[in-house]
Simulated scan of single mutants.
Amino acid sequence: MNIARIAAPLAVVAALAGCSREGEISVEGGVGIQATRTACPIVGVPAGTGDITLFDPPASRDAAAIDVVANLTNVRAECADSGDDVVSTVSFTVQARRQRADGERTVTLPYFVAIVRGGTNVTAKRIGQVTLTFPAGQLRAQAQGQGTSVIARSAATLPAEVREQLTKKRKAGQEEAAVDPLTAPGVRAAVARATFEALVGFQLTDEQLRYNTTR
């Protein structure tokens, strides 16, 4: 599965996401924009990887052959960014439904946690498993999953000269006050390099991903 390809749309909002006391962009007199950013990665689920469908028999794609459907939800993160490394713990819930409730059943599903830099560059990826147990007579099951990402603070920090361009005070009426500093290629590239995403989703086969995107 090409994580870089499906993660790219998330980069659009990366530069304006997060929360911090530093790095604000502002213009005196209330004119312009104000945004904040943080070294913590933006957390998300790449398109097409938030659910998984199992079939019985496995090769069938008929609706009547659907066996188990699971969804990844309640994605959240806790971030510790006080040291040299930024550590983000991503947790989520998997909710599943099976078609037959004839007995107790255990289903194990694979998931990934990937770190993407600048919207397209996958710098790390880990695979985990979450196990769901369906009690006898029950159609639904739920389980919790978790993954941890570690990013060097130096990599997630904007260079001083770029921070100066972004935080420079601009007065209404000045020519530069009408220009978004993020339109400068060098500034935009630096923000992209310092922006990370922690993406979580089901580890799908090519066939499963194709099913999710074309059904």
Rank of each mutant, 00 (worst) to 15 (best):
M1D: 05
R5Q: 14
A7I: 05
A8R: 15
A8Y: 10
P9F: 11
L10F: 11
A11L: 12
V12F: 08
G18H: 00
C19P: 07
C19H: 08
S26T: 15
G30C: 14
G30W: 15
T38K: 05
A39C: 10
I42P: 06
V43H: 07
A47K: 08
A47Q: 12
T49C: 15
I52V: 11
I52N: 09
A59P: 12
S60F: 11
R61K: 15
D62T: 12
A64I: 13
A65W: 05
I66F: 07
V68H: 03
V69L: 11
A70S: 15
L72R: 02
T73N: 02
V75L: 02
V75C: 04
C79W: 13
C79P: 06
A80V: 06
V86H: 00
S88N: 14
T89F: 04
S91M: 09
S91W: 00
V94S: 04
A96Y: 00
R98T: 08
Q99P: 09
Q99V: 12
R100K: 14
A101W: 10
A101G: 10
E104R: 14
V107D: 03
V107S: 01
L109K: 14
L109T: 12
Y111M: 07
Y111L: 10
A114D: 04
G119W: 09
G119R: 05
N121P: 07
V122W: 03
T123Y: 08
R126E: 04
G128D: 08
Q129R: 13
T131N: 08
L132C: 06
L132I: 04
L132Y: 01
F134N: 03
F134E: 04
Q138P: 05
L139K: 12
A141Y: 04
G145L: 05
G145P: 12
G145Q: 12
T148K: 03
V150C: 10
A152S: 12
R153F: 08
A155K: 13
A160G: 05
V162I: 14
V162Q: 05
E164F: 09
Q165W: 04
A172E: 05
D180V: 04
L182I: 00
T183Q: 01
T183M: 03
A184S: 11
P185V: 05
R188S: 10
A192M: 06
A198M: 03
V200Q: 01
V200A: 00
F202K: 00
Q203D: 15
Q203I: 01
Q203S: 02
L204K: 03
Q208F: 06
L209D: 08
N212M: 08
T213K: 11
R215W: 07
